[in-house]
């Protein structure tokens, strides 16, 4: 079943279109930066973007900081929102269920497929941004001679940088798992895939908005997007773990609650589409 879902995902031209669009943004930024050599003013713009002017090997992180707040979660919401509602709308859901594919199994397969999408997307972004980063950005003499600078100014050896970058991307994937869980739940409830995706996006936008509002302080610990950019903390020295750990816990809670809700809703649902 998982195999079938993966092949469905990978054979869909839309999947690759989405990945290409997501990947285009950091590439465009790299080209613009290389041409103008103008970094953002301190305190503005995505994390690491000013640092990549001297060190191209940090560009995968800048790319992650660019796509993580908006592009990636929207794509995940679309893909996961379509998971069940899309099959229902095409009329294929009932035929899957009477194969029979167990409802729980179908849900798991869908989640795996969505996560495969996330992994592929994130890897494509990481690889292309590394390549364009090294080719177009950074001061080559500095890059080959010295270690990378951590956010706290201390040196970071190449294995360390690779390890931390890997952690950052893994963390980003976990964050997307939270979005996927929400969208998947909505997908079991909503009649149309777009409705499910819109619902998940509404939650994202609301969460992002509430985070900027001090009056909503009491809600902040519960917000989905609260700790997403905490991957930046992995590049401080010493590594600041508490935000990342909290982020992992929040995403974990979202995954448990919404996957649980998705399971409860889907296994007891009358399939009337």
């Amino acid at each position: 079943m998982i195999h079938a879902e993966l092949s469905k995902l990978l054979r869909n031209r839309r999947t690759w279109g989405t990945i290409a669009i997501i990947d285009a943004l950091p590439t465009l930024v790299a080209v613009l930066l290389a041409m103008t050599d103008l970094g953002p003013r301190p305190g503005t713009g995505p994390a690491f973007l000013s640092a990549v002017l001297t060190d191209g090997t940090l560009f995968p992180l800048a790319a992650l900081a660019m796509v993580l707040p908006l592009f990636l979660p929207i794509a995940v919401a679309l893909v996961a929102g379509e998971a069940v509602a899309g099959e229902a709308q095409q009329g294929t859901l009932r035929y899957l269920l009477i194969r029979p594919v167990g409802r729980t199994r179908l849900l798991v397969a869908k989640l795996v497929a969505v996560m495969a999408f996330v992994v592929v997307t994130v890897l494509v972004v990481a690889v292309t941004s590394y390549v364009v980063g090294v080719l177009l950005l950074g001061d080559q003499t500095v890059t080959v001679t010295g270690p990378t600078t951590s956010i706290s100014g201390s040196p970071m050896s190449t294995p360390e940088l690779v390890g931390r970058t890997g952690l950052a991307f893994a963390y980003a994937m976990l964050c997307m798992l939270g979005v996927a869980a929400v969208a998947l739940f909505l997908s079991t409830v909503a009649r149309s895939p777009l409705g499910a995706a819109m619902g998940a996006m509404t939650l994202l936008v609301a969460s992002t908005l509430l985070l900027t509002l001090d009056a909503a302080q009491a809600l902040h610990p519960y917000l989905l997007t609260r700790h997403w950019l905490a991957f930046v903390d992995l590049f401080r020295d010493p590594i600041r773990w508490d935000e990342v750990v909290r982020g992992v816990l929040v995403q974990g809670a979202y995954v448990v609650v919404f996957l649980g809700a998705a399971w409860a809703s889907f296994t007891t649902k009358d399939i009337t589409d």
């Binding site: 301190p42 503005t44 994390a47 690491f48 000013s50 001297t54 706290s152 930046v232 401080r236």
Partner: peptide
């Protein structure tokens, strides 16, 4: 004392009679 920003940090370190200020974004 590090002032943490989502885009980096600015640190002040005091060591005896010298003070060091570090800004990540300005390197």
């Amino acid at each position: 004392v590090d002032r943490l920003l989502t885009t980096g940090e600015t640190d002040i370190r005091r060591n005896g009679d010298t003070t060091l200020e570090w800004s990540f974004e300005r390197a």
